[in-house]
Nucleic acid binder design. Structure first.
Lengths: 345, 345
DNA sequence: AGGCCGGGCTGAAACGTGTCAAGGTTAACC
DNA sequence: GGTTAACCTTGACACGTTTCAGCCCGGCCT
């Protein structure tokens, strides 16, 4: 009931009949202590149920065994898959992950960064809400490792792991243009997210490449990249007279696309016959949607694994660490939601 | 580049011309220090960019400002929603959440509990892999608060927040029985998960209540509660001759149900005409599925919020804390996947 | 004037660990 | 038997806080 007296390294030492230093050595450099002593100490540890206090270790060592992961939305399967990748890699290295959800809110992000700094985390893996690296630079100056996640670093001395979002936008748009679409809606937001902007500009680029006017792509900004916001955007799109209405919709992520799909279906607009739909991320649920969703696939788990690996590398050997900006290539997965060649406007 | 010398409470003190004790008081009990002194200290803190070291604080105080959350699967939207509820509540209280993913693996769960113990977390919110409370009891004895999540506590001195899984199973089964189904498959697993067993037994109970034989319900155990396992279970179900084949499937969660749905569709079995389908959890994607999925809804965010609240309550006022076993009621949401009254076997 | 009170601050002692210079023991070698 | 080296172990200090007994000082009461 009442928490018994915490057992410390000192208790172990006296129980095993050695000094505290030796116990510490058994814990941290088992090789330098004689086997017989080591066993005696281990026995004492077991008997007393000693659990090292990481706070004390951290205090002494300067940094702890935790790292922070800051994502835009826990509820988005894209990020949970990334998180899984991170966790795989760090878990194997005996590190703990403090999981933070910025919800796309700069204030919340900032609060979490404060918290992580107080925890003296080894490093932070983060998908920043906006480009104000300001804060992150300060973090680095204080010795906190920073790896940008799903975002390309503009500074050569900061690692990043990202996917080529412009290319992703191009792939999606080229696909729709080739299918004959000439009025296309882009649904995404908030605009402050670089991913959204990049995917949009990639799409624009594909348009120009095909010799089409920029007006071919109409922008519908959403307040958040969620299913509900997608439903909302869809009704805005349907609010236009049919002759001006888009015949295809490209969404900046799959949650938006699923929302759009729901609302279109509710209003009895057929997908893909009346409106074609392409999402982004290719989350597992895209393939299981009411109309299986075409989507731009990203290597989600690898993203997380690579970022974690980069961080561990730098943590273990800061001197010969080479900062890297890793870029993966996305891949278009065509499913039913965009399988309908349009022959007339 | 090179991390400058870390600034400590001592630097702040000398900069402000006060003692360390006073700085500490400014941080922790601002009211007992004179306004003028306080301002001087705050100014120094700002100027030096001082960030308190939580490890030192924790070392002194005994326990830190973090808590552990251990779930069965990060990739399952049910748990991410729960996590969101937890994070809402703890974030507001300035606590950090260490997020752990046991993946249903007892060994991994155990490793994470070790880690959390070393971190000296205030408490642990956990959905245990199995019923071996053994480990959790030990944790409590050492002063780590424990709240069971999505699992009913059998001990009166441990808080828990759960949903009535037997009732959920009953609701689903009653629905199918009333629609005329007489050969029903239950898909769920691994069996070691109490949730799975409870939902199954609830289903059995509804069956008996309706005066039907227990053989009406056939069990298909899965190695994990995932989409892939669901696909697999579906092909096992379809392996039976049509006359013996179930006309309805009740899945222990929505991921399984989505997997079943995918495989049935692939093999051109119609849902709900040929086989009706009911899932569990009512994750957001259930409504957006190829065939909108009937499901048993749980108050996911509230689950997380309530658990976190219980833990904070006990942490803040251990003496008059009343341990509680909160039980929420699930609710059946009927959608297209089970909307087909069966008139003949 | 003396006594007392209390607000405001100080200084030092912990908390549990890692580190490292120094000491101690043993074995091997001449 | 003495020297040396190799190998283990020790003991004390440092890490950055919180806490608490105590000090100082101005004001109030008698």
């Amino acid at each position: 009931m009442v928490p018994g007296p915490a057992v410390s390294i000192r208790d172990v030492a006296s129980q095993a009949g050695v000094s505290v230093g030796t116990v510490s050595n058994v814990l941290n450099r088992p090789d330098i202590v004689a086997a017989s002593t080591r066993n005696r100490v281990l026995a004492a540890i077991n008997e007393l149920g000693f659990v090292p206090n990481d706070a004390a270790r951290q205090l002494r060592r300067g940094r702890g065994r935790t790292l922070g992961l800051v994502v835009l939305d826990v509820a988005n399967p894209f990020f949970t898959d990334v998180a899984k990748g991170v966790e795989d890699t760090t878990g194997a290295a005996g590190m703990a992950v403090i999981f933070c959800n910025s919800d796309g809110d700069p204030a919340k992000e900032s609060r979490y960064l404060d918290l992580l700094e107080e925890q003296r985390v080894q490093g932070v893996l983060i998908t920043p809400v906006d480009d104000a690296n300001e804060r992150l630079v300060r973090l680095r100056e204080r010795g906190v490792l920073v790896v940008l996640l799903d975002r390309r670093s503009t500074r050569p001395d900061v690692c990043s792991v990202a996917v080529d979002d412009r290319l992703g936008g191009e792939l999606a748009m080229r696909h729709l243009v080739e299918a004959g679409h000439r009025r296309i809606a882009f649904v995404g937001g908030p605009w402050r997210l670089e991913q959204v902007r990049d995917r949009y500009h990639g799409a624009l680029h594909a348009l120009r490449e095909a010799g089409l006017a920029e007006e071919t792509l109409r922008r519908f900004e959403t307040p958040s990249p969620t299913v509900a916001a997608g439903r909302d955007a869809a009704s805005r799109i349907l609010g236009l007279p049919r002759s001006a209405r888009a015949t295809a919709v490209f969404c900046a992520n799959d949650l938006l696309a699923l929302g759009v799909l729901q609302e279109l279906t509710r209003q009895q607009v057929r997908v893909p016959e009346d409106i074609a739909l392409v999402g982004y991320d290719d989350i597992d649920f895209a393939a299981a949607a009411a109309v299986p969703l075409s989507s731009v696939r990203q290597p989600r788990q690898r993203l997380g694994q690579t970022a974690a690996r980069l961080m561990l590398d730098e943590a273990n050997d800061p001197d010969n660490h080479q900062h890297q900006q890793v870029i993966f290539e996305p891949e278009l997965v065509v499913r039913e939601s965009s399988q309908y060649a349009r022959t007339s406007g």
